[in-house]
Design a protein around this nucleic acid. Sequence first.
DNA 1: CGGTTTTGACCCGCGC
DNA 2: GCGCGGGTCAAAACCG
Length: 551
Amino acid sequence: MDNGGSSGGGRPLSDNHSHPSAFSFSKPFKMDGGGGGVVVGGGVSSLVPNRRINEMDFFAQKETARVDVKRETTAHDGLVQGFHINTGLNLHLASGGSEKSSVDGGTSPSNKEKLNMSDKMVGLRAELENMNKENKQLRAMLSQVNNNYSALQMHVVTLMQRQHNRRAEISLANEVNTEGKVGERNRNETIVPRQFMDLGRASMAEKDESSPSWSGSRSPQTNEDASRESRRRKTGSTSNENKDGGREESSDQSLQGGLPNKVPKFNCSQNVEQASEAMSMMRKARVSVRARSEASMISDGCQWRKYGQKMAKGNPCPRAYYRCTMATACPVRKQVQRSAEDRTVLITTYEGHHNHPLPPAAMAMASTTSAAATMLLSGSMPSSDGIMSSSFHSRTMFPCSPSLATISASAPFPTITLDLTHSPNLLQHQRPNAQFHVPFQNLPQNFAPGSHAFNPVLHSQSKFSALQSSPEMQPPQVGTEQVLKPSSSSSDTVTAATAAITADPNFTAALVAAITSIIGNVHPNNSSNSSTNTRSTNVDNNIGNSNLVGN
DNA sequence: CGGTTTTGACCCGCGC
DNA sequence: GCGCGGGTCAAAACCG
């Protein structure tokens, strides 16, 4: 691996990554001080060289220079010149100055006043720019919150429906069979999918240990916690482990904290439980992205810290494990591995939801993974028996983009795979035919289904059966994904999932935005990617993505 | 010096 | 029970 050369410390990473708070607050303040000092203190001659101090903000310097010229001409050429200048760009400034000078009486005080006003102007503009930046940052945060909100909302609706179905089912079963089993089930009333529940318990157990009755099959999350717990007990809980444990705990909390709007809506404790279960499950849902890239990692705008690497069976390429480090408690993880069949294909699997504001470059991917996970879960959870059927080792395709995404909801983690290996022409076949209008209704103009015909080559490549049977399409890195063996029940579920996903414009919009950003990032032309990971390409990514996300 | 990467060890679930 | 594979940890090495 090229990790040694590309590793690099964290500082370039944090510098390159346009963390909003880092960017928008430091520079304007510098600018204020510099610009103000120059104009007030310096004479004409001293001002000109100052223009070359490029450390300062361009905007402030331009203002300074403009004022210099005016002042110079006013002083040397008299009233006519001065009058001429006053009709220039800074009308407000000039008139204000003249007003004050008439009050004060002298001409030189008038100049000073002008200077002061221009100083203030510069400061105000700097402030304005600062506020604009803040505004942008807030907008980004807002859009993320909105995204999370809608995702969670959909999931809650799904849960409610499932609960409703279950009640109906139970009452039906009670009529038919009055056995104790059913009665017991009825007492528990809201039995959600077992796997779902276990995941929820894991997070609940951390916060509330007063639920010892939780037992049964252990979910990976529980395993993780138990493993951590056992290690903690063994080693006497070093500071690091404490930190880690705290991190995990706070990650769950923060997960919910990141979506505060929904949780209070649950009045009964069971619903709260379900919500947290849903969140835990969402953390476990995975979104896998296949993309061609020479880089060791695709640039998604986030900061990642590698915490492990393993040789996976059946793949000579190692699998790398990354954690999001943009926030201390961010639960998002990802796995990166090259495809065994095609080494140019990089498979990135995301898991979890960011609990912190994201830079614009990261918004697309985060939104996609979030929405995809949500839709995957809400659509894939069978409502018939509340348990993710073991027969649900199935995959399906997005009808809107047959070569784009694959659902693989095999236990324990439902996974959705976005195949971007045909990315160069992706934008040309957003909508293969008129059959799938709805999902792209809300697309930004850039991504609105264009007049380009669906690429016939890709179209032929993307047939359902071909993709299913293609070993390349099976993300080899995750879980126990299996090749499709469609059963009637699974196909129903898959259909439901597909329908749910494709009916959600938010998801499709986010999906397309993410895909487009990825295309920009993983394109072979991006030569700087070849030996470096995210940090080296973030600036480019930000530039490239800002347009996409902004739309 | 602080953050990241590397890498061996550990734990757990699962299949036999 | 044992081995295998996946996932994670954490000390050491590395980097800027």
